[in-house]
């Protein structure tokens, strides 16, 4: 029986969205899918009458776009709202950091609201384009580098962010991480079998 008076309890072990203690990673042909539990996320919505902030020096992108600077990324998530992402900061109070950069704005912690999956191609953009056409119904222009789209994927609401021709990120709600992973890997696997 545990001693209730124990002062120094062991730290709680966090789980990744896909349920493991370490992130999932898999490859099919040229495509590699990696779960990214280290990325911190916070939403940022300037309040009425505020000037548009520039947190961490990021210029908040126009509708349908994303912008990166160093480990920081901003993506447009809706009229008057952005998501700010930071690699490697999931275990910090990132919302507080964003709030400090945008005093008076509405900031909400979103880190654990999402599963973040990076998909990289070792054969330039074509395999990613073939993968996306099996997943999302968007015109090619909305999937060019620098674009971020919020859309439906296998009945899930997702962000699809094309950071470069050969890489993109898919964000889906954390609780459905397994379904999203299944959809992505199944499509990637079929593409490997029948390019």
């Amino acid at each position: 029986m545990a001693d209730p008076t124990l002062a120094a309890t062991p730290r709680l072990i966090p789980l990744c969205a896909l349920g493991g203690e370490i992130p999932r990673q898999t490859s099919f042909g040229a495509l590699t899918l990696i779960e990214r539990p280290d990325v911190a996320l916070a939403s940022l919505a300037p309040r009425g009458g505020m000037a548009t902030p520039a947190p961490f020096g990021l210029t908040l992108p126009q509708p349908g776009r994303c912008a990166s600077a160093g480990d920081m990324t901003a993506l447009w998530s809706g009229p008057g709202q952005w998501m700010i992402a930071a690699d490697g900061q999931a275990d910090t109070d990132f919302a507080a950091a964003v709030q400090a950069q945008a005093p008076g704005a509405s900031v909400t912690d979103q880190t654990d609201g999402w599963v973040w999956i990076d998909i990289a191609s070792a054969a330039r953009g074509a395999p990613l384009d073939r993968l996306l056409e099996k997943l999302v119904n968007l015109p090619p222009a909305a999937l060019q580098p620098g674009r971020a789209a919020r859309t439906g994927l296998h009945h899930l609401g997702v962000f699809v962010m094309r950071q470069g021709a050969d890489r993109l990120a898919v964000l889906g709600m954390r609780s459905a991480a397994g379904s999203l992973w299944h959809a992505l890997t199944q499509a990637a696997q079929r593409l490997e079998t029948r390019p």
Partner: peptide
Amino acid sequence: PLLGPRDAQEF
């Protein structure tokens, strides 16, 4: 108006 044509299934 902000994103261009999108399939009605998203709505």
